[in-house]
């Protein structure tokens, strides 16, 4: 397991220099106080880890990996754990940048920063949970296309629902959701991540290379 994690991190090590340069530029722009930019490190972590799937596929790593002293489920678990670790570090970077900018602009707001981190982390985790089973089942290219088609259809469906269906949420339910949002989100993501991992594991266990 440790070896598999190390492999992915050694692969993305080559990108570190350009990512650091990008982060410096990003910090300078973020000084202006645009909160949206704080989403960037988490997004970069996602994209960086996605390249490990591409490298694996391009070099036909998986058939070889299966022959090593690891189980198939460990190969899948290492992907989830590796991306989780990278996401965690990207959120620490985001926090430090937000802290630095807050101190510089003398307007640091801890609660707002944590809400932002939760939003970044949750969105990327959600994206990973959806995309990883697709990558494992269909490969990176087809998985990406599947993701875009999925996002398009989902947006279209949501747009149609919002336009044509009038939904009235009772006030007490609305208040409950808002006050427990972080917990609801955490439980939802936990279930989604476990579900995503189980699906990926099932696909990978049966997959032939």
């Amino acid at each position: 397991m440790k070896g598999l994690l190390l492999k992915d991190f050694l692969m993305i090590k080559g990108n570190v220099r350009s990512v650091l340069l990008f982060l410096v530029v990003f910090c300078l722009i973020a000084l202006e106080g645009n909160d949206f930019l704080l989403f960037v490190p988490a997004l970069i972590s996602f994209m960086m880890f996605m390249t490990t799937f591409s490298y694996d596929e391009y070099n036909k790593w998986d058939p070889y990996a299966i022959t090593l002293a690891v189980k198939r489920k460990e190969i899948v678990f290492a992907k989830y754990l590796g991306s989780f670790i990278l996401l965690f570090f990207s959120l620490i970077i985001t926090f430090l940048v937000a802290l630095g900018i807050g101190i510089y602009n003398q307007n640091f707001d801890l609660q707002k920063t944590f809400t932002l981190l939760l939003g970044c982390g949750a969105s990327i985790l959600f994206l990973q949970d959806i995309v990883y089973p697709l990558f494992i089942k269909f490969g990176v290219e087809k998985g990406r296309i599947g993701l875009f088609v999925g996002i398009f259809l989902l947006s279209f469906l949501l747009g149609w629902i919002l336009k044509n269906v009038s939904i009235s949420i009772p006030q007490d339910i609305y208040s409950f959701v808002v006050s427990y949002l972080p917990w609801i989100l955490a439980v939802f993501l936990l279930i989604l991540t476990i579900g995503s991992y189980e699906i990926s594991k099932k696909i990978y266990t049966k997959k032939e290379f």
Partner: peptide
């Protein structure tokens, strides 16, 4: 094992 055309990613 040595496989035909399958090994570690080539940036390593």
């Amino acid at each position: 094992v040595v496989l035909d055309n399958s090994f570690f990613p080539e940036i390593l």
